[in-house]
Simulated scan of single mutants.
Amino acid sequence: MALNHDLIGVESEPVEKSWTSKDTLLYAVGVGAGLDDPTAELAFTTENSAGVEQRVLPTFAVLASQGGRRSTELGDFDTAMLVHAEQGFELHRPLAPAGTVRITSTVTGMYDKGSAALVVIESRAVDPESGDPVITSRSSVFIRGEGGFGGSRGPASDWKAPERSPDHQVTYRTRPEQALLYRLSGDRNPLHSDPVFAARAGFPRPILHGLCTYGFTGRALLHTLADSDPARFAAMSARFSAPVFPGESLTVSMWVDGDTALFRTAKDDGTIVIDRGTARFRP
């Protein structure tokens, strides 16, 4: 088994991706919108409420910009050993409830972490008619058993939580069936539904999608720091640091400095599940 290092720096062929109003509504429900109060987030969960225009959660940008590279192109390895490590995106304009983008992706690095490899991919989603940028997405995957090839370990992060209490904390609970709902947005990885596959990866039961936890976190940032206005949400990035099991609660801690916020997300027992988070907002 080996990674395909020849992919580094090679842009993928462009692909078009479309989504519908139903897709963005289903995504919102999949990341907990309306869970405790079905009337609280109608702009994201309905398309026909009186006096309410449908809007899109900013973190849907990650799904909208996927499609340029498949994990199977990265090399020959056991997909049960692959986990999402980091995710970031920049929104160049708010997303429409239904739309189409043209996506290209480039593997920007394959880093040797000793017992594992870290693969970093940047995707660009543009308007297929004008060519104007819509989303820039950066993600990395951690592949156990694929390190030791003698490459660079990659750049180090200088992120550090402020030495003061968070300016805001928001807690959301997830449902026991949250992963079954979220997977309907497109990620059918059996790690999140099949107990046998989850056991192969070393988990006692299926875990929640990292991007579902990311979506819960994004909702907390949106409603707390951007007045629930997606047009003010410019960018978000973070590292996945521990698994979440469906049914667990998530607390998002935020430290604000002007138009930027640092954040992290933890479970009730204090385990940090999303770390080194940075978000940026427009006035």
Rank of each mutant, 00 (worst) to 15 (best):
Q87C: 09
D78W: 00
V83W: 03
D112T: 01
G67D: 04
I143Q: 06
A220L: 08
T72H: 00
E86T: 14
G145K: 04
P58R: 02
E41K: 05
M254A: 12
V273L: 13
R188I: 14
R138F: 07
S249N: 11
Y214R: 04
H92T: 07
Y172W: 12
I121A: 06
A50N: 09
H223M: 15
N48V: 14
D257T: 10
D6M: 12
H192L: 15
C212L: 10
A125M: 08
F245C: 10
R232V: 14
W19N: 06
G270F: 12
E90Q: 11
T271M: 13
L250I: 14
R282I: 12
H84M: 12
S115M: 10
G215E: 02
G99E: 06
T174D: 09
L35D: 10
C212R: 00
P133I: 05
V15R: 02
E177R: 08
T100Q: 06
L118E: 01
L82N: 07
M110I: 14
F203V: 13
D257I: 11
V62Y: 00
R264V: 09
R175Q: 10
D275Q: 10
A161T: 11
T104M: 13
R219E: 03
R153L: 14
V15K: 05
V141T: 09
V252T: 14
I272P: 15
S123F: 06
D76N: 11
L184V: 09
V10K: 04
A98F: 06
T24K: 02
Y111L: 12
G186H: 01
M110C: 12
T104N: 06
G148T: 08
T104P: 15
V15I: 15
I135Y: 01
P94D: 04
T213N: 04
L211D: 07
E86C: 14
G114R: 00
R200C: 09
V31N: 03
S237D: 03
L211S: 11
G34Y: 02
G148P: 15
I8D: 00
I8W: 00
R239V: 08
P230G: 05
R188H: 09
N4F: 03
V52L: 13
D269F: 12
R153M: 15
S65I: 07
S193V: 15
S130W: 06
V244H: 02
D158E: 14
A33S: 11
R276W: 03
V119W: 00
P246V: 05
T224G: 13
G68C: 10
R239C: 06
D78G: 15
N48R: 04
V252F: 03
V29D: 04
N189V: 14
V170D: 03
V273I: 11
D229E: 04
T174Y: 04
T260C: 12
V62R: 00
S12H: 01
V252Q: 05
V273H: 04
G258Y: 02
P283Y: 00
V126Q: 02
L63P: 01
L82H: 03
R264A: 13
S237Y: 00
M236F: 01
L3S: 04
R173V: 13
S130P: 14
R205N: 14
Y172I: 14
V170S: 08
M236T: 09
E90L: 15
V101F: 05
S249G: 10
G30T: 02
S139A: 15
A220Q: 01
Y111H: 11
A226R: 07
G99K: 04
Q87L: 08
